[in-house]
Design a protein around this nucleic acid. Structure first.
Length: 207
DNA sequence: GCTGCGATCACCT
DNA sequence: GGTGATCGCAGCG
């Protein structure tokens, strides 16, 4: 399949998809396709790991209210919230709630599908399992940075599209890498997928 | 102002 | 399993 075929065979999720409870959006994003159409290439991959940052959640960036960094979280749903972490990596979120409510879904891992050579170049790395197996890695592979903060995910160069309708098993587990508050079962992933991040906790798997 | 730490990652042992 | 890279924010004064 060439790049044009791929683009035309995938349709962006409608904006209403994101106007639901954040944990539902996080679960339903598993299996959907992240697409970045650059001037040169199409980059695409299947979303295999997500994390919800919801209400009453001390780990949520929006927990202490609105700041310049988390402004996009309080903007309209179906848009991107991209922030820099540890001064060097970016993380991509899908904003889920109406204006004024700060909730989002962090995309934690993607299975590379299209534009793999470009991803390898962006990551200076050859192993396909390591190209997008973490929130910072997938942004580097896809060339996603702060320019995409506030960008719509329903149109334009960065989109999330329907995936194939293969039956998939979504595993629910706790979050990790955060210190505030209880570890809520708000992480979702494709069971036994080889492209998950290194921190998936099978011991705490729920389904 | 300064300090500590975080939704990370690669590299080292 | 430990460490360094290095930016924005919060908390403290």
């Amino acid at each position: 399949m060439n790049n044009n075929d791929f683009l035309h065979s995938h349709i962006a999720l409608p904006s209403d998809f994101y106007n639901r409870r954040t944990v539902e959006v996080a679960r339903d994003l598993i299996g959907c396709i992240l697409v970045h159409q650059t001037d040169e290439n199409t980059l695409a991959g299947r979303i295999v790991e997500t994390e919800a940052y919801g209400p009453d959640d001390p780990a949520n960036h929006a927990w202490r209210g609105q700041t310049r960094r988390n402004q996009a979280m309080f903007g309209p749903f179906a848009h991107a919230y991209v922030y820099k972490i540890y001064g060097m990596y970016y993380c991509l979120n899908a904003v889920t709630c109406p204006v004024g409510v700060g909730e989002a879904v962090l995309l934690r891992a993607v299975e590379p599908l299209v534009g793999i050579e470009t991803m390898k170049r962006n990551r200076s790395m050859d192993d396909p399992r390591k190209l997008c197996s973490g929130p910072g890695k997938l942004c580097q592979a896809f060339g996603i940075d702060s320019r995409f903060n506030h960008a719509p995910l329903t149109e334009g160069s960065l989109k999330i599209c329907y995936g194939k309708r293969d039956p998939i098993i979504v595993m629910t587990t706790t979050r990790i890498g955060i210190s505030h508050g209880a570890e809520l079962p708000w992480r979702f992933c494709l069971e036994n997928n080889p492209f998950l991040s290194k921190t998936v906790r099978r011991d705490k798997a729920i389904a």
